[in-house]
């Protein structure tokens, strides 16, 4: 093993990783590297192989082909060493529902080797940080989705994991809980924890990750920083709704005049156009204001995961099959 400083050493190194369940290929030829203290988002639909990838890295499943190491230890041969350094939360790794939040946190602390008193103290600390003090003695069974997710994350942080795996941490959460969870993940990454999270939302990956890999049908179809990926995927879209059809038709010309390619929906009085950059919005509003056009609504939407997939497929069809499509993550 190379002697490198803690922060520069790659925490996760994956080459040629594959997993088959009988005739089903869940993962194939995955290469990636995650630097210490960085956040990797694994983006993909259900069944893309996200959970399988996390399960292999967390030593819950053995790879069929290829190699993966976490914190310098091979997941297939040194699982115990890996488990000493990671924490995992997701749909298949949860808490004891019959125990309270406090009971769960004390249990996990004890299992990690904390003496009884220290385990209790750590549990109190985490209960407070995650806002679970009031519900601390109720069985986890009675918790709301948001509370459960907070407890799951708290359970992960009982020890001092070097690498944290979060399998779809915000699926099913309300917006406020989601923002709270994002803040926690950012804070953890800033204080040196390496985070791997899976998500179906480009927006989430964009907000949290230093690097993103896109999985489709078990293979990495794209990778890079959020900015690189968004540049490849294309622009955000604006949709402007007017009070009447006449205004909408008039606006189309204004859109064109500042260099956009608008689409008119005369029945809904809306005009939609892709935005090359955020600055165009200002020019657009000035142009519309000059003629006193009255807006009913204006929205700017991020590209969705579907658009990511579509644009990647378009890129594949337009170019000869280039290895660039499977960009290596070399952090």
């Amino acid at each position: 093993m190379r002697k490198l400083g803690k922060m520069e050493r790659a925490r996760i190194d994956v080459t040629g990783l594959g997993k088959t369940y009988g005739p089903v290929t869940a993962l194939t030829g995955v290469d990636l590297t995650v630097a210490a203290g960085s956040v990797l988002a694994v983006l993909g639909h259900n069944g893309a192989g996200k959970t399988t990838l996390v399960d292999i890295l967390a030593t819950r499943t053995r790879p069929s082909t290829g190699k993966a190491s976490v914190c310098g230890y091979d997941v297939a041969t040194h699982g115990h060493e890996v488990r000493r350094r990671i924490a995992l939360t997701g749909q298949f790794a949860s808490v004891d529902e019959t125990l309270s939040a406090r009971g769960n946190l004390v249990l996990f602390a004890r299992l990690l080797g904390a003496p009884a008193r220290a385990a209790k103290a750590r549990a109190e600390e985490l209960l407070e940080v995650f806002g679970l003090t009031e519900a601390a003695d109720r069985p986890a069974l009675t918790y709301s989705g948001g509370m459960r997710r907070r407890l799951d994350l708290a359970a992960c942080l009982v020890g001092s994991p070097e690498v944290l795996f979060l399998d779809e941490p915000t699926t099913g959460l309300d917006p406020v809980s989601r923002t709270g969870l994002w803040a926690t993940v950012r804070h953890l990454a800033r204080s040196g924890t390496t985070v791997v999270l899976t998500t179906q939302y480009l927006e989430e990956a964009d907000r949290l990750a230093d690097r993103i890999v896109v999985l489709a049908a078990g293979a990495v179809v794209a990778g890079g920083t959020p900015a690189e990926l968004k540049a490849r995927v294309g622009a955000r879209t604006t949709t402007v709704t007017f009070r009447d059809e006449w205004s909408a038709r008039w606006a189309v010309e204004e859109f064109q005049r500042i260099g956009l390619a608008p689409t008119l929906d005369p029945d809904a009085y809306t005009v939609t156009a892709a935005l090359p950059d955020a600055g165009v919005i200002l020019a657009l509003l000035r142009a519309l204001d000059r003629y006193g056009l009255d807006l009913a609504d204006l929205t700017v939407t991020e590209p969705t995961l579907d658009e990511v997939y579509l644009s990647l497929h378009r890129a594949k069809w337009q170019q000869p099959p280039a290895p660039a499509a499977v960009e290596r993550d070399t952090a």
Binding site: L111, G113, A114, V129, G131, G159, S160, G180, A183
Partner: peptide, 27 residues
């Protein structure tokens, strides 16, 4: 104010506990 606490005082994860395993008997 629980949520408020969560964003202002996030957990300190690193180099704090040093708990990385227990004996078989404890387990």
């Amino acid at each position: 104010n629980a949520r408020h606490a969560r964003t202002t005082r996030a957990p300190e994860p690193h180099d704090r506990t040093g708990w990385t395993g227990s004996t078989l008997r404890t387990q």
